[in-house]
Simulated assay, not measured.
Amino acid sequence: MTDTSIPRADESLDEEGTEPIEASDDTEAELEAEEAEEGGREKTAPAENDLFRQSEIAADYVEGLLDILDYDGDIDELVSGGRPVVEVVGARLQNLVGQRGATLEALQELARLAVFRQTGSPSRLLLDVGGYRATRRKELAAVARNAVEKVKEYGEPIRLEPMSAFERKCVHDVVNAIAGVESESEGVEPNRRVVVRPVD
Rank of each mutant, 00 (worst) to 15 (best):
M1D: 09
T2P: 04
D3E: 06
T4I: 10
T4N: 13
S5F: 05
P7D: 04
P7W: 00
D14E: 07
E16P: 00
G17D: 00
G17N: 01
P20H: 06
E22Q: 10
A23Y: 06
S24E: 14
D26Y: 12
T27Y: 02
A29V: 11
E30V: 14
L31N: 09
A33V: 07
A33S: 15
E35F: 15
E42A: 15
E42V: 13
T44A: 14
A45C: 14
A45R: 15
N49G: 11
N49K: 15
D50Y: 05
L51E: 12
L51G: 11
Q54V: 04
I57R: 09
A58T: 10
A59N: 02
Y61D: 04
E63G: 12
E63L: 10
E63R: 14
G64I: 07
G64A: 14
L66R: 00
D67A: 09
D67N: 02
I68G: 12
D72F: 05
G73R: 12
D76F: 02
E77P: 04
V79T: 12
S80M: 12
S80F: 07
G81R: 11
G81L: 05
G82W: 09
V86S: 06
V86N: 06
V88Y: 01
V88M: 03
V89W: 01
V89C: 04
A91D: 13
A91T: 05
R92E: 11
L93C: 06
Q94S: 12
L96M: 10
G98L: 03
Q99L: 13
A102K: 13
E105P: 00
A106K: 00
L107W: 00
Q108D: 07
L110H: 02
R112Q: 08
R112G: 05
A114V: 10
V115S: 14
F116L: 14
T119D: 08
S121A: 15
P122N: 07
P122M: 08
R124I: 11
R124W: 10
L125N: 11
R133Q: 01
V143P: 03
A144F: 03
A144S: 02
R145C: 00
N146I: 02
N146A: 09
A147S: 05
A147F: 01
V148R: 10
V148D: 05
Y154W: 06
Y154D: 13
R159C: 05
R159A: 11
L160C: 05
M163F: 01
M163C: 00
M163T: 02
S164P: 00
S164C: 01
A165Y: 00
R168H: 03
K169I: 06
K169V: 03
V174D: 00
V175L: 03
V175Q: 03
E182Y: 10
S183L: 09
S183W: 02
S183Y: 01
E184K: 10
G187R: 02
V188L: 12
E189D: 14
E189L: 10
P190T: 04
P190Q: 05
N191D: 08
R192S: 00
V194W: 00
V196A: 08
V199E: 14
D200A: 06
